[in-house]
C-alpha cells in the first residue's frame, strides 16, 4: 500500500489517470492496465483542467476493484464544504484511503467556462477539514458515526515565492502528509526546493516529484508556454532539436531524471501527455 511504502521511506511511484469523458470506463481500465504492478498507486484526477469527466470517486472505486491502490484528487473548485465532506465520507466508505487536494484550475480554463466557481474552502482549509474527519468530527463540530482514515496530500510548485512557501507550510501544518510537485525537469533546481523544505524544518513530509515525459520539442514548448510552474530547460529543448528520434530521447531523458531523483526525494509521479504506453519502459530504464 502506498501510504506504508511512502512512510517507510521507500521510493514510491504513482501515475496519473483521468476518468472517462462519458460512462465507458474501458479506456481508463486499459490505460491503468498498462502500468499495473509497475506503480504503487494510480492518482485519479478531478475534472482536471476544469474539463468535466466522470467523478474520481467512481473511477477510484472501479480501479480498486481491479486491485489498484488509488489516490483520489479533490479540488476546491466544484464543491462547497457540505459536498466536499460528503464526498470524503463516501470515498472512505468505498475504501478509498488517499486523497490529493488542490485549489483546481479556474472554470474558464475548461469546457464549461460559464460554471459557477465554488472555492468555498481553499486547499489549506480542506486539509484541515480532512484532519477533523479523521478525528471523527465534521467542520461544524458534529460527531461522526465512524471516522475516516484518509492519508492526505497536497500539491506544490517547486519554485516558490515567499508567500507561496508560507502557504505550503500551512498545508503541512493542516495535515498534508505528502506533496506531489509540479513537473520537474532539472534535478539540480529541484534539490534546491528540497533544501528549502528541509531548512524550514518540515522533516516528516514526503515529497513526490512530478514527471512529464517529453515526446518532442513541441511538447516542451507547449508546457513552457501553457502550464504554470513548469520550465523545461533550454538544453533539453536543444537536444530535441538535434535528435532524429525524439520519442526515444524523451523516454531516455525521463528515465535519467528519475534515476537522479532517486536519492533526493520520496518518489516520482508520472503524468504523461497522452497515454501511459511508455511509462513501464521509462521506469524499467530508470532501474525501478
Amino acid at each position: 500500500m502506498i501510504r506504508e511504502k511512502l512512510l517507510s521511506g521507500k521510493f514510491t511511484i504513482t501515475a496519473e489517470i483521468s476518468p472517462p469523458k462519458g460512462t465507458d470506463i474501458s479506456g481508463m481500465m486499459k490505460e491503468a492496465g498498462m502500468i499495473k504492478d509497475a506503480v504503487d498507486a494510480v492518482c485519479v484526477t478531478d475534472n482536471q483542467r476544469a474539463v468535466m469527466r466522470m467523478s474520481p470517486i467512481a473511477a477510484c472505486s472501479a480501479l480498486s476493484q481491479e486491485g489498484f491502490d488509488t489516490i483520489m484528487h479533490l479540488t476546491c473548485r466544484d464543491r462547497n464544504r457540505l459536498a466536499l465532506q460528503s464526498e470524503l465520507l463516501g470515498a472512505a466508505g468505498l475504501g478509498i484511503k488517499n486523497v490529493l487536494v488542490m485549489s483546481g484550475d479556474y472554470p474558464t480554463k475548461g469546457d464549461h467556462p460559464g460554471a459557477k466557481p465554488v472555492y468555498d474552502l481553499d486547499s489549506v482549509q480542506l486539509l484541515g477539514m480532512i484532519s477533523r474527519l479523521n478525528n471523527g468530527i465534521d467542520l461544524s463540530g458534529n460527531r461522526l458515526e465512524g471516522k475516516t482514515d484518509l492519508f492526505a496530500g497536497a500539491v506544490s510548485n517547486t519554485e516558490l515565492t515567499e508567500v507561496a512557501l508560507m502557504k505550503l507550510e500551512k498545508k503541512i501544518n493542516s495535515g498534508a502528509r505528502f506533496i506531489i510537485t509540479q513537473a520537474v525537469f532539472d534535478a539540480g533546481k529541484f534539490s534546491e526546493f528540497i533544501d528549502q523544505v528541509h531548512d524550514a524544518g518540515w522533516k516528516k513530509i514526503k515529497i513526490i516529484a512530478g514527471i512529464i515525459p517529453l515526446r518532442s520539442r513541441k511538447t516542451a514548448d507547449f508546457l513552457n508556454s501553457n502550464i504554470a510552474g513548469v520550465k523545461v530547460p533550454d538544453d533539453m529543448i536543444r537536444r530535441f532539436a538535434s535528435s532524429s528520434d525524439p520519442g526515444a530521447l524523451g523516454i531516455e531523458m525521463a528515465a535519467d531524471l528519475i534515476r537522479e531523483l532517486r536519492g533526493i526525494c520520496g518518489g516520482v509521479h508520472i503524468m504523461p501527455i497522452g497515454t501511459h504506453e511508455n511509462t513501464r519502459k521509462i521506469l524499467e530504464m530508470a532501474g525501478l
Binding site: 481553499d122 489549506v124 515565492t161 508567500v163 508560507m166
Partner: peptide
C-alpha cells in the same frame, strides 16, 4: 478570483493571475 484566504493558488505565471489579465493579488498582499 478563487477567494483564497491562506495564500496564492499555484496558477500564477510570473506574477500574473491564472484567471485574468491582472497581477496575482497575493503578491500585493505579501
Amino acid at each position: 478570483s478563487k477567494n483564497m484566504l491562506n495564500g496564492p493558488c499555484g496558477g500564477a505565471v510570473e506574477g500574473k493571475c491564472e484567471v485574468d489579465e491582472r497581477k496575482c493579488v497575493w503578491d500585493e498582499i505579501h
